[in-house]
Amino acid sequence: MDSLDVKQKKINKEYQDYANSLSPKSKVFKNCMMAFIVGGLICTIGQLINNLAKIYYGMNKEEASTITSITLIFIAALLTGLGLYEKIGKRAGAGSIVPITGFSNSIVAPAMEHKREGYVLGVGAKLFSIAGPVLVYGISTSVIVGLINYFFVK
């Protein structure tokens, strides 16, 4: 029985390696360029909002940063609703996933789609199907960072 398993494992391994060798590699360089340009552009828009908030509304660094996040989240939610964010994401890859706008997209997309299952367990619950883990790990890490600071850093 064991020897059969070993033999089958070998066949599987050979097959998997061959299957992987057939599959074309994603065009990493081209994808990276697109991610760089789109991601960079989103951040530049963020910088613009940030500067406007500081100059025209006299906001401090934290406030300007918050209003930037809120504005970008709003824009991304709107674009997702209009069906445009997915079109950007198809080309930009990480360029539109990694910025805060991608977080917003990941909230709207599942919630919108599950509307037909109701407003509580459809929209309400699915808002966090992808963004929930981000909050769980982000907030938990911040608590640990805070506690370490409290106990070990003077």
């Binding site: 994808n31 990276c32 760089f36 340009i37 991601g39 890859g93 990480a94």
Partner: peptide, 12 residues
């Protein structure tokens, strides 16, 4: 921002 997104793209 672009460089951070490139890191993400390489991970994907």
């Amino acid at each position: 921002g672009g460089v951070i997104c490139i890191i993400g793209q390489i991970l994907i």
